[in-house]
Design a protein around this nucleic acid. Structure first.
Lengths: 220, 220
DNA sequence: CGATATTTTGACCCGGCTCAACCCAAGTGG
DNA sequence: CCACTTGGGTTGAGCCGGGTCAAAATATCG
């Protein structure tokens, strides 16, 4: 989307950095010094309360953007889920390029607005959905982003992997590990999904899953 | 923040439109045709589930931005809270100006990222906070945005108005009206706030309120 | 004032949390 | 090779915060 000029400049300021599973990328409040794009793996963003309660507030997939070009302190903890490679850009330089590159800025604005929309969908999930609906929504989401599930081409029966542990799923959905586990079992019992291993599953009835997720039918 | 040129162009394409309390500004899925800035009043963004459960997913204050320049369908319902005046810009024209105006784009990107951060704070609230913490957080938030509360200059005892009804507060916090009412009463009983009328209150103990909100002490 | 909408309060119930076992696979060292 | 650990995941029993249903109390407005 960006012109050859921007690409060359980005190329010049980029550097790769890898993280292993569970490794902290930045802690909330810490100076970051860079912004980055996720090359591979997943990144969890979390907020932690004084007494230890934790909520995941962002889950970045490949090509998602991390950090704010216009300020240095990280707003939340960022942790590598699985092995992660980031393509990092020094924050100040990136900001300078951004200010003069409408194409790059347009792209970033669009991505940020998509994140905001996703985040608002998440608000509905946390505020109003039942545990079963949360789990069903989560499985549908992961299946979609993994490319396995698709409203047009459901591909029922195809297995895919959950990138998150039960604990991470619980932090994503505002539940406890136990409730996550129980609802997974319930969906299996009800014949909507097939749990091959705890991390690996296939969707037996995509429609049933969407019904259980309580989502609007409209795929937009 | 924008140069005189952009301002002139914006001036040329703007038009004001007013809404009365409770009036629908756009419905989810509907074509919007414009983007807008909130001149006065408040705007609630909501998502509604098939069975009627509703969750507020955005609450816009003066000068906040509404709509996406890059696509036409509204993603959520937008409703006027109190009497609202919007400054509207025809979407296509605004998008064209945006593409050529780095200043304007920078400003919009910054605002969108602020919204995203606020939204993620909200995720923590919905996912992990108790009813009492939710209410305390909400009162602190409104007091801050109303300018009455300030960590530096708490101004305890100064009254301010809640822009939302109990029902709207419930939709904001992922609670029921009854729980909102009960927790308000509890905070009054505990001597943290003073309810002059249901809509008008003053904070007796700002520190106590923040403690009850469970927020990190860091004002960043 | 009367009428209607909003808010508050009460009694009871239930979904999801807590606490506590138990299961199971993958090391690890004797 | 097998006892032991370790770390996820599952399942059960019981409890409690917040939901539901119902009624009373207050605001707001003609």
């Amino acid at each position: 989307m960006s012109g050859p000029d921007e690409l060359a400049q980005l190329e010049a300021m980029k550097s790769y950095r890898s993280f292993t599973h569970g490794q902290e990328i930045v802690a909330a409040g810490e100076a970051m010094g860079f912004v980055a794009s996720v090359v591979s793996g997943h990144v969890a963003l979390r907020r932690t309360m004084a007494d230890g309660r934790r909520q995941m507030v962002g889950l970045l997939f490949q090509s998602d953007f991390l950090g704010r070009p216009d300020r240095d302190g990280a707003t939340y903890d960022a942790e590598a889920i699985g092995d992660v490679t980031l393509c990092r850009f020094e924050r100040a330089k990136f900001g300078a390029l951004l200010a003069t590159s409408p194409n790059l800025q347009t792209r970033l604005l669009e991505m940020t607005m998509d994140e905001l929309d996703a985040s608002r969908e998440w608000l509905l999930l946390l505020g109003r959905k039942t545990a079963r609906e949360k789990i069903a929504s989560f499985i549908a989401l992961v299946g979609k982003r993994a490319g396995t599930l698709d409203s047009a081409r459901p591909a029922e029966g195809a297995a895919f992997e959950l990138p998150l542990s039960r604990e991470d799923i619980a932090e994503y959905l505002g539940l406890t590990i136990e409730t996550v586990s129980r609802q997974m079992s319930a969906l299996r019992r009800d014949g909507l999904i097939d749990l091959i291993t705890p991390r690996m599953l296939s969707v037996t009835s995509y429609q049933g899953l969407l019904d259980s997720a309580g989502d609007d039918p409209e795929p937009l």
